[in-house]
Amino acid sequence: MTMERQPTSTVTRPTSTAEAVRELAGGGARPRAGGTDLAACLEVGAVAPGPLVDLLDVPELRGPHWAEDGSVRIGAMTAVAELGADPRLAGAYPGLAAAARALATPQIRGTATVGGNLLQRNRCSYLRNPAFDCFQTGGDSCPARSGDHLRGVVVDQGPCVAPHPSSLAVALLAYDATVRVRHGSGTDSGAVADRDLSELYDGTDPTRDHVLSPEDLLVAVSLPASVPGERAAHLRAAGRSRAEWPLVEAVVRLECAEGGTGPVVRAAVAVGGVARTPLRLPGVERSLVGSLPGRGPGAVVLEALEGLTELCSPLPATGYKVPLLQATVQDAVERALDSPDR
């Protein structure tokens, strides 16, 4: 039994973001959200022990805040479960709700947070095994690249081969979300900056899974107003039926004319499990314009899916992810279109 005492010296519990940023200033301390991944990482030494700044008691970080223009800001400490359960959120952003309902397990979803999900560590077995050093733990190699990387990337962006694990990042990328960060250091100290979600990640940096410094605080994610006539689908390809990290996952959003029954006027397709960062697939998105709900994907879409081969640069053991990526996106497209064939 792992009745671990987490090797943690102190926990402080700020009640405002300003206080939290002060506590984090100077480095050394680490923010704690739901703590689910942090506890697991501390246990296996993927994260070094140290003082924690617990964000549970910061009310500003919680819940959705709707603006008059219909956009929403979701506090970073909002539980993952809320994305799937809140009727307004789920109605406005069905692809995000579906991704949130499919990830992890009910117990984890109730505790894990939006911010924690976006900033969690990757699932590489080498990172999470104390027997190995890698770029992420101060080493100078990627043992998975030369070793076992069956679940690794198929779009090889850099030295590390671990796919980004966040399902919410895939969905938020498809929704053109932005993230609000309160900087705790440097010239930006105290400044609040909004940036595209994709800027949280740098696939070529093998040393970390996101670009924020330990002094920065992810405050919220913002989504633009919902689109009338949106059809969305989320799909994860995995061996087990539930509670499994996906091999590949996809979120497809189709903005259709005539309140959802007309042809696609704009599409957003994002995928996970394939690269160090979640990816948008602009070629597939373009091909989907003009597709009709209630019909299968047309030849131009299938051609764009074929073209995903060009995007891929498989590792020795991840060649299967090329057809799996195509299949997953195709299935998600068919679900979003409500194709009669599937």
């Binding site: 792992t2 987490q6 926990v11 519990r13 704690r32 703590g35 689910t36 506890a39 697991a40 617990d54 549970l56 397990t105 009910p106 117990q107 984890i108 109730g110 505790t111």
Partner: peptide
């Protein structure tokens, strides 16, 4: 329902 093995006791 919550996984108590990952939940910090002070939560």
């Amino acid at each position: 329902p919550t996984a108590s093995c990952l939940l910090p006791a002070d939560h």
